[in-house]
């Protein structure tokens, strides 16, 4: 166990292992996306209320789910990095940020496009959408802070503190927005609530969720490999690798 843990902390070991896994992970991603899109677009029934717009759900829900899972990964990696002073965990945390920010933006965009036909408006100050917007700001803040500090280890540690502060605040923000939303929009709540999902829609949703997570795994590994190259640029093995 400890051997494994200390190995995980070794950039060279991770770089090589991820390099071996990457082709398979990308292949799995493509496969799941093809299967998921077919299920979502062709083989799932239209919703009796939302019609064909329900097909947007198969993108919106996984993107929103991933945007939050990605933030959680970033925060956990930050805790590990700060507590055990593990350089690799800093690289993982930094790599999560751009992917998570992109997923959050995608969740917001698909949410707005989905909202137009069913709620009749592009934007509703709904608790979920608003929390997602705040999440985007948190990601942007993390990236901006990391980019503003020129010294690598200082940037890593400062951004890690911010990620942890953010993850402590997210539930509070979500709760308060939820509370505020029920206060102001009591009438519209019922039309925002989603009914229970039918089994015929669960399979496409699960496949798409798996596809998004496979994409997350693959792009995170690639991104961490880049981060390693950047951080270990002075080391012997990276120099040998670049020359080869």
């Amino acid at each position: 166990m400890w051997l494994w843990f200390s190995r995980l902390g070794s950039p060279k070991w991770f770089y090589e292992l991820a390099g071996r896994w990457l082709p398979w992970t990308w292949a799995l991603t493509v496969l799941l996306f093809v299967a998921g899109s077919a299920l979502a677009l062709l083989f799932s029934p239209p919703d009796y209320q939302q019609g064909e717009t329900v097909r947007i759900m198969y993108l919106h829900v996984p993107a929103a789910f991933l945007s939050m899972a990605c933030y959680l990964t970033m925060a956990i990696a930050s805790v590990i990095a700060l507590v055990w002073r593990m350089k690799m965990a800093f690289a993982v945390a930094r790599s999560c940020a751009p992917i998570g920010a992109a997923m959050t933006a995608l969740a917001l965009f698909t949410g707005a496009v989905w909202g137009k036909p069913i709620w009749g408006t592009w934007w509703e100050w709904d608790a979920r959408l608003t929390s997602e917007l705040v999440l985007l700001f948190l990601y942007l803040g993390y990236i901006a802070l990391h980019e503003s500090i020129s010294e690598q280890s200082q940037a890593d540690r400062a951004a890690a503190v911010l990620a942890i502060v953010g993850v402590v605040n997210l539930p509070i923000i979500h709760f308060s927005v939820d509370w505020w939303n029920t206060l102001h929009q009591g009438a519209s709540i019922s039309r925002l609530q989603k009914p229970a999902i039918d089994a015929s829609m669960l399979w496409p949703l699960f496949t798409m969720l798996a596809a998004f997570f496979a994409f997350f795994a693959a792009s995170l590994m690639s991104r961490v490999r880049n981060e390693i190259l950047k951080r270990e640029a002075a080391s012997r093995w990276v120099k040998a690798l670049v020359k080869a």
Binding site: L41, I56, P98, I99, M103, S222
Partner: peptide, 25 residues
């Protein structure tokens, strides 16, 4: 079912987002 602009915009946006991430990497 008449919702072509909405549905296809979302699928296009997703493809674009994934492509931008991969290209960035």
């Amino acid at each position: 079912g008449g919702y072509a602009p909405y549905v296809w915009t979302c699928y296009g946006a997703t493809l674009l987002t994934l492509a931008v991430i991969v290209a960035g990497l």
